[in-house]
């Protein structure tokens, strides 16, 4: 029988109380409820506390280089587009080191679900500032406070062509499960920005902080309205964090627009091309 325990591997090594615990439960519950098992998913893990889920969540997976989980996942999807493909990373890997890949993946509408553990701090390297931290945030690497304004992942994704942009809060497991399920069900590039308190290194963006600053998007919210999604994405500037799906659109995915990949036959299973005469005749 497939239950969420099928995805279990090693016991996590995260700090007690870390938001990653509930994110992991959220992901494996969502996968199980949607009928997946570890043989039916591709996962790339970035580097960091989030990426360390590689040993706690099973699947056909790559524990990639830091910042490169998105391009590797894009490759997996191209290699076998029948397999559900998930990226698990942190704010540093996806928005910092891999920021360029992230915005181009949005543009391409690659059919991957990117789950970002956004705790506004670098946990695994013991507490340096992350690109999503609020301006002025003091950390070991920015003792005078960070000069840059925070990167806005939701606005970036909406503006660069992502077709599913959502936010969830690790302190609300049902919200995590529900949002991850919707992201997995979406055809195209889906971003789930997961607000995740780092209980060890971030003493500002705590569970209590988020409980004060998050709110659920109302039932009548129109997620097909791009401009409204942009407005919601910009609310972070007033320290308001909407939870739920900010934006969703139906558009052809990257692989659906490659004539080579049309149909259910994945690239890996095709027969070898052997009609070389037309190619070599070009050189006469």
């Amino acid at each position: 029988m497939i239950d969420s325990l099928s995805f279990d591997a090693y016991t996590p090594t995260w700090c007690p109380g870390c938001g990653d615990w509930s994110i992991r439960i959220g992901i494996k519950t969502a996968l199980t409820q949607l009928g997946y098992d570890p043989s039916k998913v591709f996962i790339t893990f970035d580097i960091g506390c989030s990426g360390n889920m590689n040993d706690f969540l099973s699947g056909y997976a790559m524990h990639t280089l830091h910042g490169r989980a998105v391009p590797s996942a894009i490759g997996m999807k191209i290699g076998n587009h029948n397999v559900k493909t998930i990226v698990i990373g942190g704010d540093g890997g996806i928005y910092g080191e891999g920021g360029n890949h992230f915005l181009h993946a949005c543009r391409g509408n690659h059919d991957v679900t990117v789950i970002v553990h956004d705790n506004m701090v670098y946990g695994l390297t013991t507490g340096q500032v992350a690109p999503t931290a609020k301006k002025g945030y003091k950390s070991k690497s920015t003792p005078l406070g960070i000069i840059e304004v925070p990167l806005n992942p939701l606005a970036l994704a909406v503006s660069q062509g992502a077709t599913f942009v959502a936010q969830a809060f690790a302190g609300d497991l049902n919200n995590v499960i529900d949002t991850v399920k919707k992201g997995l069900q979406h055809r195209g590039f889906s971003l789930i920005n997961l607000l995740q308190p780092c209980v060890t290194f971030n003493k500002i963006n705590t569970y209590q902080y988020y409980l004060k600053h998050v709110y659920k998007l109302p039932g009548e919210y129109d997620k097909s309205n791009l401009k409204e999604a942009m407005n919601k994405a910009l609310e972070v500037n007033e320290e308001k964090f909407p939870l739920g799906v900010l934006y969703q659109a139906e558009k052809p995915t990257f692989h659906e627009q490659l004539p080579q990949l049309v149909g259910n036959m994945p690239l890996v299973d095709r027969t070898r091309y052997t009609a070389f005469d037309p190619l070599i005749n070009e050189f006469i």
């Binding site: 591709f42 790339t44 790559m62 990639t64 280089l65 910042g67 490169r68 391009p71 590797s72 996942a73 894009i74 490759g75 997996m76 999807k77 191209i78 290699g79 076998n80 397999v83 360029n100 890949h101 181009h104 994945p266 690239l267 890996v268």
Partner: peptide, 20 residues
């Protein structure tokens, strides 16, 4: 044609992982 060489090679590792 990837956005940069980092993407090119890491995407190729992704496809290679799937057996391509």
């Amino acid at each position: 044609h990837s956005e940069d060489e980092l993407a090119a090679v890491n995407t190729a590792l992704g496809t290679a992982f799937t057996g391509v």
